[in-house]
Amino acid sequence: MKIMVAVKRVVDYAVKIRVKPDKTGVETTNVKMSMNPFCEIALEEALRIRESGLAKEVVAVSVGPTQCADTLRTALAMGADRAVHVDAGTANVPPLSVAKILRALVQAEQPGLLILGKQAIDDDCNQTGQMVAGLLKWSQGTFASKVVLDKENQKATVEREVDGGIETICLDLPAVITTDLRLNQPRYATLPNIMKAKSKVIKKVTPEELNVELRPDIEIVQVTEPPKRKAGVILSSVDELIDKLKNEARVL
């Protein structure tokens, strides 16, 4: 079986972002970019499945500008076998278009499993995995915190983090799985693996070559800073706190 993993290049999770003064978006030039944390978890899970002998090959794919190749190189250094970069230039590619690109790649590569992160920490959409599953008419296991594959019966048992607790479902393969934080602890790429990754192949294609039309149906009007909270006060005792909550904030 082949596993395909979709990875996204985003502003590093620890960066305090700045909204551009012209309100067109968030400053991304000269800002540290990294692989989306949930994508790292998705890749780690795919690698573990391959290492357990249930899969032969892990293909990492990314959609976005030229610099996405760096993110894919990281994926290769972590252990992916090869990578596909769908170069969409500087265009903003919404989840529906990414899902259509992934569908085209799935149809070309025929993986038995497609793993994605549950959401990208920049747009916070939490859509792409569900959408590609819908387009492919595959079953979906979203917000996975545990994945057990049954190769013989071509099934995956997935534990999902849902609002009320943990839900367990069983999916026929091929399936789409999106990863939650607690699925695993991603590995670091070692130096020898980073060197080795340089000789691995990143295939480049364009959305046009995949016959996917980028048709944005959501227009970003403006991006602004959230309202600032007014400065708080530091209190000296529990008594003072209770008094403030009772008489000033009136929440007790």
Binding site: I17, D122, E219, V221, Q222, V223, T224, E225, P226
Partner: peptide
């Protein structure tokens, strides 16, 4: 977006 550190108006 960005963990609530920006608000995006979309049409």
């Amino acid at each position: 977006i960005y963990a609530g550190n920006a608000l995006c108006t979309v049409q």
